[in-house]
Amino acid sequence: MTDPLIAVRNLYLTYADETEALRNVSLDIHRNQVFVLFGPSRAGKSTLLRLFNRLSDLIEGTQRRGEVLLAGRDIFAPEVNVSALRRRVSMVFAVPTPLPGSIYANITYGLKLAGVRSEEELGRRVERSLRQAALWDEVKDRLESSAFALSGGQKQRLCIARSLALEPEVILLDNPTSGLDPISTATVEESLYELKARYTIVMVPHSVQQAARVADNAAFLLDGELIESGPAARMFVHPQDKRTEDYITGRFG
């Protein structure tokens, strides 16, 4: 097998109030797959996800040990440009977060920050990313209208499109369907199948069922520890650890 795109090595993270959010976590995430981090609340899933693009920097007083390697390079090395890292490893949140402004402006904002200036290039990327996020047909005639006028599901796909426009390598999805109805959820899940051809997706799912539906590989976390990880086909059918089995079958969680 090829080298992993993201490699986590003996990672510990402690918050300012001394709670251990992550304890000795190691895992490999390979290219062009959907990797799911699942587990009960407070397992450390979102914490781990936010470490991958250093949004965790925003929380004051955290202490970290261990490494996160992106394509073999330590993302916490002092010479790393955090803005550039976040363009390579982009994130979509549980609550859709459109920016004030038009649909078009929402997508071009990140591109302009990244230095894309030509209107032609911007327009091309807007169309392509909206198509990839399965939103183009619904909004192509009103790109100049406010992003706040979209429905919840559309807003979330707009946020996905906004990330895609930057052509990242990794897309982090933190429970992206939490506020969505079943139909919108299905649309977002379907788009993942197409997206993984071009991108690597790391996702914290809404439920075990969703994890099983979308994952190629999965990792089960519990109280900040990695219990087990592996191909989804095995994890969700024959989990090796008793705790994983209990969680999947709904005995706790």
Partner: peptide
């Protein structure tokens, strides 16, 4: 202003001032 707005902008590579 909801914290998510800031995170949303930071997550696509904006600096704090941006």
């Amino acid at each position: 202003v909801p914290k998510e707005y800031r995170d949303g902008a930071l997550a696509i590579g904006a600096t704090q001032w941006q």
